[in-house]
Computed example of a mutant assay.
Amino acid sequence: MGNNVPIHAPLFRAEQGVTLLGGGAVAHADLALALALAPDLVAADGGAAHGVAAGHMPLAVYGDMDSLRPEIRAAIPPERIHALAEQDSTDFDKALRHIHAPMVIALGFTGDRIDHELAVYHGLAARPDMRCIVLGAHDLVVHAPPRLMLDLPAQTRLSLFPLTDVTGQSTGLVWPIDGVGFHPARRIGTSNMTKGGVVELCFDGPGMLLIVSRDHLAAVAQAMRAASVWSRTTGAPWV
């Protein structure tokens, strides 16, 4: 890219929620499901093709544009395309950092290249001030906020995967997490189960991924909308 290509772009602001499309596989039914909860459509680079193919024109496209096919680019109003030249972040992060919305549901970011998917989870950890749900074919993943209240059926699988040192407290889990020192190389919390009813999770800092079945997307979306987030600069809870 030329030196005249910017590394910053206008922010996309939404009052409800944003569905963010990546370049991986996206079923039309999943796109409709996400748009019902997060009605404004934004794409990361080549993910725009999924929206165009489904008859939903992205309101903004962010990325380095190395995978946006010429025919898809030509179909999108040029003022909606924001090319970002820097190569120190992924297209997922480029898009996420330009979105101001109460919640983001991200599709097309899982199930393909493992290194790309891991980079997405790094992006969640790097943006703890974002309420973002990464929706996959079987599960969904969020970066756990300081406190989360989830209404889930009994025997729901709930996994916790730390990306750093994290501790927390819980109610409503079969195996409580109180007093557990989580760390990616020492102690993880996958395949826990719910007792039924409201699950409350509190954490002492950012860095915990929470994974549940995608069947609970609506409940997780509702809970994430109501949750506070982490300050990206201090790591402290921030409304």
Score class of each variant (00 low, 15 high):
residue 49 A to R: 13
residue 50 H to G: 06
residue 51 G to Y: 10
residue 51 G to A: 11
residue 52 V to H: 06
residue 53 A to N: 12
residue 53 A to F: 10
residue 54 A to S: 14
residue 55 G to D: 09
residue 55 G to E: 10
residue 56 H to I: 04
residue 56 H to S: 05
residue 58 P to M: 12
residue 58 P to V: 07
residue 58 P to F: 12
residue 59 L to N: 06
residue 60 A to V: 09
residue 61 V to E: 05
residue 62 Y to N: 10
residue 62 Y to W: 11
residue 62 Y to H: 08
residue 63 G to P: 06
residue 64 D to R: 09
residue 64 D to Y: 11
residue 65 M to K: 12
residue 66 D to T: 12
residue 67 S to Y: 10
residue 69 R to G: 07
residue 70 P to L: 13
residue 70 P to M: 13
residue 70 P to T: 11
residue 71 E to S: 13
residue 72 I to H: 04
residue 73 R to Y: 07
residue 73 R to K: 15
residue 75 A to M: 14
residue 76 I to K: 11
residue 76 I to E: 06
residue 77 P to L: 14
residue 78 P to R: 14
residue 79 E to V: 14
residue 83 A to F: 02
residue 84 L to A: 10
residue 85 A to E: 13
residue 86 E to N: 15
residue 87 Q to D: 15
residue 88 D to K: 07
residue 91 D to R: 12
residue 91 D to T: 13
residue 94 K to N: 09
residue 94 K to L: 13
residue 96 L to G: 04
residue 97 R to A: 04
residue 97 R to D: 05
residue 97 R to P: 01
residue 99 I to M: 08
residue 100 H to Q: 15
residue 100 H to A: 15
residue 101 A to H: 02
residue 103 M to Y: 07
residue 105 I to W: 08
residue 107 L to S: 05
residue 107 L to F: 07
residue 107 L to V: 06
residue 110 T to L: 15
residue 110 T to C: 12
residue 111 G to T: 04
residue 112 D to I: 09
residue 115 D to E: 10
residue 116 H to C: 09
residue 116 H to S: 10
residue 118 L to C: 07
residue 122 H to D: 11
residue 123 G to T: 06
residue 123 G to E: 03
residue 123 G to I: 08
residue 124 L to C: 06
residue 125 A to Y: 13
residue 126 A to Y: 07
residue 127 R to T: 09
residue 128 P to L: 07
residue 129 D to S: 11
residue 129 D to G: 08
residue 130 M to A: 15
residue 131 R to H: 11
residue 131 R to G: 00
residue 132 C to W: 04
residue 132 C to Q: 01
residue 132 C to E: 04
residue 133 I to S: 04
residue 133 I to G: 02
residue 134 V to S: 04
residue 135 L to H: 03
residue 135 L to I: 04
residue 135 L to K: 04
residue 136 G to L: 10
residue 136 G to Y: 05
residue 136 G to D: 06
residue 137 A to W: 00
residue 138 H to W: 02
residue 140 L to Y: 03
residue 142 V to C: 08
residue 144 A to E: 01
residue 144 A to R: 01
residue 146 P to I: 08
residue 150 L to D: 03
residue 151 D to T: 14
residue 152 L to V: 02
residue 153 P to R: 05
residue 153 P to I: 04
residue 153 P to N: 05
residue 153 P to G: 06
residue 156 T to G: 01
residue 156 T to L: 07
residue 158 L to P: 01
residue 158 L to I: 05
residue 162 P to L: 02
residue 162 P to I: 01
residue 162 P to N: 01
residue 167 T to H: 08
residue 167 T to P: 00
residue 168 G to C: 02
residue 169 Q to E: 09
residue 169 Q to G: 09
residue 170 S to K: 00
residue 172 G to N: 02
residue 173 L to S: 01
residue 176 P to E: 02
residue 176 P to S: 00
residue 176 P to I: 01
residue 176 P to R: 03
residue 177 I to H: 00
residue 179 G to P: 02
residue 179 G to I: 10
residue 181 G to D: 08
residue 182 F to E: 00
residue 184 P to I: 08
residue 185 A to T: 11
residue 185 A to R: 05
residue 185 A to S: 12
residue 187 R to A: 03
residue 187 R to V: 10
residue 190 T to Y: 00
residue 190 T to S: 12
residue 190 T to W: 01
residue 191 S to W: 03
residue 191 S to I: 00
